[in-house]
Amino acid sequence: MQSSDIVNLLKEKFSKEILCTVYFRGDCTIIIKRDKAKEILKFLKETPSLDFDYLIDVTGVDYMGARQPRFNVVYHLMSIKNANRIRVKVEVPEEDCWVETVSDLWATANWHERECFDMFGIEFKGHPDLRRILMPEDWEGYPLRKDYPVGSDLGDKEWKTFKDILQQTKERA
């Protein structure tokens, strides 16, 4: 099955939900609305002819100042049986920052969604254990957002626990 067939199949079923499709150097990307995102992903997984059984990655993109809405959540799907790949993007506005979890469809989404939450502050509704995964538990801010500073000029955003540990080490010495 070609990727254009997959797109046509989706357009038949979810004509209102699909915003646009992009083809770029052999990759197919579908941009969809958030409200029925989970239904579409479930359809992609559970339709026998599509059979996207492998979720490669879930990640976020911050288009601050370049696009509205600000965030995208990107799902990379693969069907091992049909050797198809597809990329699904879900648009997420900044002020209402959530998508539904897919960790009940693909178990691997659990950690990927935790990482996306950790780095971008996007909430995954219905996630069984939404905690930070890479940064420490008491970290403030979301590091991969574009308004988060890269260099050492963190100012009051500096990790407080680090200062505490420095202080404790000094006292011990």
Partner: peptide, 15 residues
């Protein structure tokens, strides 16, 4: 707790 080897390469690459 898997974050100890996280070095923020994506963030570094931004600039």
């Amino acid at each position: 707790y898997v974050g100890y080897l996280h070095r923020g390469i994506e963030k570094l690459s931004e600039d």
